[in-house]
Design a protein around this nucleic acid. Sequence first.
DNA 1: AAAATAACTGACAACGTTGTCATTAAATTA
DNA 2: TAATTTAATGACAACGTTGTCAGTTATTTT
Lengths: 338, 338
Amino acid sequence: MVTIKDVAKLSGFSIKTVSRVVNNLSEVSPETRQKVQHAISELGYQPNTMARSLVIGRTNTVGVIIPHSAEYIFAHPFFTEVLRGIAEVLSANNHNLLLYLAYEKVPYSRVFIQRQVDGLILMSIPIGDPNLHGIHESGVPFVCTCRITEDDQITNYVDADFTGGVEQGMEYLLSLGHRRIAILPGPMSLVSVRLRLRGYQNAWRKHRLAEPEDYVLEGEFSSESGHALAVKAMSLPNPPTALICGDDLIAFGAIQALKEMGYRVPEDISIIGFDDINLARFSSPPLTTVRQDTYLKGRIAAETLLTLMRGKCPSSPRQILLDTSLVIRNSTAPAQNL
Amino acid sequence: MVTIKDVAKLSGFSIKTVSRVVNNLSEVSPETRQKVQHAISELGYQPNTMARSLVIGRTNTVGVIIPHSAEYIFAHPFFTEVLRGIAEVLSANNHNLLLYLAYEKVPYSRVFIQRQVDGLILMSIPIGDPNLHGIHESGVPFVCTCRITEDDQITNYVDADFTGGVEQGMEYLLSLGHRRIAILPGPMSLVSVRLRLRGYQNAWRKHRLAEPEDYVLEGEFSSESGHALAVKAMSLPNPPTALICGDDLIAFGAIQALKEMGYRVPEDISIIGFDDINLARFSSPPLTTVRQDTYLKGRIAAETLLTLMRGKCPSSPRQILLDTSLVIRNSTAPAQNL
DNA sequence: AAAATAACTGACAACGTTGTCATTAAATTA
DNA sequence: TAATTTAATGACAACGTTGTCAGTTATTTT
């Protein structure tokens, strides 16, 4: 292994001077710099990251924590986009990205105390995660890409406005004349799902309409679940004329189930998704959906974290809510009397 | 920051003895071990990873390289699955995962020479990547999740048998009576696409049939591209009765385009995809596709790398080709005379 | 009882870098 | 000209850990 010592010996200068050249400090004469650089490229020298980190007390590395219990996070299309946003910002700022699968027993903050990372991004935290305590205690700069409670006032977060997003979808369905609107929000164990439900309830209240009963159909973020729930919805005594879904996968499954049952989408039943994944344009019919910019979520999370890492951690948390927008395609139509 | 020194002072033992306890070495008496452990948990001590790595010369970290020029890799459903396979194996073996976006100018091997990682997984390498030279030279243990040439005999790789996969699809279409089969293989800049094409050609040859002309329609791995190419295919003087696609996204786009043009799938035109992503079951009609196990690809790549890292790098490369299987759903039917 | 072995424990160097401070030579100022 | 500043460089300690090896007990063997 080529070390700074070898470069010093070959160039005839001291270790410290080589270090100055490597770190591009100004206090080196041009000739010296050139000679040292020549020796560096001659030997193919690269500084040892571990040794440097040990001295300077930083690693220029950010940890991204993915709760492993939630496997569907990995499988979900939005995951990639958030990660890409994070990776690009970190890369542009010369920071590395350590990806951790967090099992419940292992406290996230460990990796910070061990000086592996200078900060953390928590990608999807279970409600009541006991690790958050340790995080706060250890003083890690961290940012969540989700909220930990419906009215989180504790963590730094960047998240989509799920409540507002569902309200947008509901407004549209109501404007089309739908009054029997069921929601397939996803798993209620997730805060984001509870926030979606809040949007659903807000919409009814805002229009001074009574929220229909039995129209909240909890499930998973998957097409399989959407399929099953759509079947269940249509077998209700008073079946809905529209379904608003917690994500696009649920919507895809629901559409297929409806077709199989002989309903036409959107003529008989309207469907709205959430996320606007790439494939939403290519379903049959193309999906009307509430768009959230997951790539941007990742970028902003990373940028926020870098800011936190540079300055002291502020007393009040940084909380950012990203707007959603309704993308109208062909899975929605005016309500018919069935 | 709590260091091993603090633990030594509090427990009354030497630094070295604390180190022995931390590393769970046997040469410590039970009482000593207990006292030291008490001090450790009292202080909340965690060993400094950088200092340890510096001494032992390893980081227990694996780098995963993603060429950034290929943005679609991030966006592609298979990416997540490979990454999940890698992450799970590394996690189970107490190794960390550093994710790198590789820009063309930055040689991958740098991160190895800098001792940030003990090995590398290269997720999708452009043909003729100049960095491979540096990789071989630096002696990094590495594994590719793809081949770098159609007959790669150099790198360690784990990849799907694209040629065989397309042959499976072709066999099925031919058995259904199709003779006008066009292929939408994806971007020819990728080796995997050239290998798919090879499977297409093999099938014709094996059946002693002349390969039809103008039936290779190059494009991207996206639904948009599939849509455009399907339109192009059907406007040929002698349009095909079946399309075999390089991935499922292309197939989805193609199906939509065909529907828009008034064709029925599969009655008029048969479609086969590649990958079997989760959503393949939920397209309309459900997609017949060649399944590759991308999650397994990731797992095996990581396991292979760990093996390489443990032993010396063998002289002959480890090359693993994973079988594919045809999943028959409803986008394929016997050929009709159009 | 003496000698040999085993079981623990600790002092100190080493890993490869950067930070602190001293030293030297050159350039500027008084 | 002498005194002061500036620029360039290097010696050495420090970062927090592990490896080496020597030392001290306790235990076993002769």
